[in-house]
Write a protein that binds this DNA or RNA. Structure first.
Lengths: 354, 354
DNA sequence: GTGAAAGCGCTAACAC
DNA sequence: GTGTTAGCGCTTTCAC
């Protein structure tokens, strides 16, 4: 962004607010209310029987002092931490916020709180994030993907808490897993495309060595092509920048280079949307002359002039199921669960009816 | 999403992995290495002088055991927590992930870690999130917006740590603040629009009673209109659903209802983009017959057939500055800073040149 | 360069 | 129903 910015520091109009004074403790509430620390603790946690009178006195004291319990001390003493670590590669891909939404929603009435860590698709960064999270002794961990460093896998396996790897099931899980088979998804899309009569098929995707799920989709896609005696007619990769714009640019590049292409398979909906806008602007007959498909089923597609073919990645459901496993809602099981979800192919308006 | 899904639970192929055994402690490392707990602690924190030999022995023991330090105990003992609470209204509005990126980037080499909480634009939820976060005794808090419940303000003020309210500076900050004046932003956009000769101006926005910043922009916008002797010719509000789609629908509704409208001001870029796509599809002369403008400067706009006029909200910069304040990089100040950033108006291709 | 003792602020377990 | 005691696993401080 080559945008110039100006800033000024306004004069301080009031005294500094955060004098690092000692924060309040149970003892303070105890003294203010004339009730023992232990009973104060009970009131504040709604544990055990406390007379209404004492309870009121304690709550009043706590409220008027502005007491906020120290969970660090509480967690150390009780050996319980109401935190669930969630490790994802990115927040700018809307897929992950949606998974998070599913997790939060399900965790809401369990007293558990998700804590998010972002890895930017870097295995080393992931290892660090996992280490940092485990050092807070969370009640469970939800980690995107099945591919981790040796050390990360070892730490997770050692942690003694439920671990759920999400999004993908094509591989070996540390403990539990909830996701779809991306390889199968790629295969299915290829089969649908071939069945609709397309033959000169190109792939356009991200150049991210660590996006294993995109890689597996492409792999499955090529497997199905091979079974039909086909190979990819062209490929184009990108990294960084506005996905929508990259989609336009890559599409233009591919169509200029290989004018006889009749199908464009994108590794995600955002670049697919860019490609769709480009084709429409060029007056290309979609899906007559050229068909298009993406992956993810993102909400954005609803607003486009034509509905891009895609596959729903079951994001919300994945989040929910993973959270349920952590919350121990699957009675009778103690880890080791693998839940496969099955995405639906939405043909939209960019694949010819077979 | 009316998508059917199927799932099955695959048979467990391996023994459950997370038997909740006791996790390792410093003592375990101490015993395994034959070095005192204290020295082990020093090695693991790189504190004080330790002989190379002992250091090696300790690290080897820790590594082979797979020891992960317990930060809960560490934090309690040292009274230091390397966490920074970040409270934002939403993750699905790309604005906030970008602010987060700025925060993470700046915090990276300070040893501080951001922990994110999401409020869904609910003041009560915000109060809860703030309470929960403060109970972990973070080193600082970054909170979106200046409007909070009484209790939330009180807690923040009491916490004894640096508090930075971000995004907005039109109001009273608890401690420090970094943001732009949304009222001024609305005013500026209105002035630009009027200067370009538009007169029949409509507003299209979210119906979110707690989106104070959108409200302030509209307010500033109307002020500037009034100064020019104008009032809004029409308005339309929405909530929920795909913003891009809503943008199309709202635009259609407004243009049908008020055919003489010559400008559409959107409260965010996403609905603005939907409106733009609608106008282009209808063959409306943009910006000749109708002008359009949004707010935020989102990356997505780069991929659209035409560049929507917008104002950059300085998201990355806001994140960076806020993090710098928390990290204590503004030497000589102890809170109470207010940093105003000045967004740039990007006229794009959807406002007539004056 | 290394170790021993005390205690961070809470809660589990038990007494009364 | 309420209080007392003993830690939780580290780090601080001070001694050696």
């Amino acid at each position: 962004m080559g945008v110039r910015r100006f800033s000024r520091i306004l004069p301080v109009t009031k005294p500094p607010v955060h004098d690092p004074r000692r924060t309040l403790t149970l003892r303070d509430v105890s003294e203010a209310s004339g009730v023992s620390e232990m009973t104060v603790s009970r009131v504040l946690r709604n544990r055990g029987d406390v007379s209404v009178a004492t309870r009121e006195r304690v709550l009043e004291a706590a409220r008027s002092l502005g007491y906020v319990p120290n969970k660090i001390a509480g967690a150390l003493a009780s050996q319980r931490v109401n935190l669930v670590g969630v490790v994802i590669p990115s927040l700018s891909n809307m897929v992950f916020p949606e998974v998070l939404a599913g997790i939060s929603e399900t965790l809401e009435d369990t007293g558990l709180q998700p804590v998010v860590g972002v890895t930017n698709y870097s295995p080393e960064r992931e290892e660090t994030v996992i280490y940092e999270m485990l050092s807070w002794r969370p009640s469970g961990m939800i980690v995107a993907g099945l591919e981790h460093t040796e050390a990360a896998r070892a730490m997770l396996a050692q942690a003694g808490i439920p671990i759920v790897e999400i999004m993908d099931i094509d591989g070996e899980a540390v403990d539990s897993a909830v996701g779809i088979s991306h390889r199968r998804a790629g295969r299915q899309m290829a089969e649908a495309i071939i069945a609709s009569g397309y033959r000169r098929i190109a792939f356009l995707g991200t150049m991210m060595p660590h996006d294993h799920r995109a890689r597996k989709r492409l792999q499955g896609f090529e497997e199905a092509l091979a079974k039909a005696g086909l190979t990819l007619a062209d490929q184009e990769f990108y990294s960084g920048g506005s996905a929508l714009l990259k989609g336009r640019e890559m599409t233009e590049a591919v169509l200029k280079r290989s004018p006889d292409i009749d199908f464009l398979y994108y590794s995600n909906d955002m670049i697919g949307a860019g490609g769709l806008l480009y084709c429409l602007a060029q007056g290309i007959d979609v899906p007559g002359k050229i068909g298009l498909a993406g992956f993810n089923g993102v909400e954005l597609l609803d607003g486009l002039p034509r509905r891009l073919a895609t596959m729903d990645a079951c994001r919300l459901e994945i989040g929910r199921r993973a959270a349920e496993i952590i919350a121990g809602k699957h009675a009778g099981t103690i880890g080791g669960e693998v839940i496969e979800l099955f995405p639906t192919l939405q043909a939209g308006d960019t694949i010819r009816r077979a």
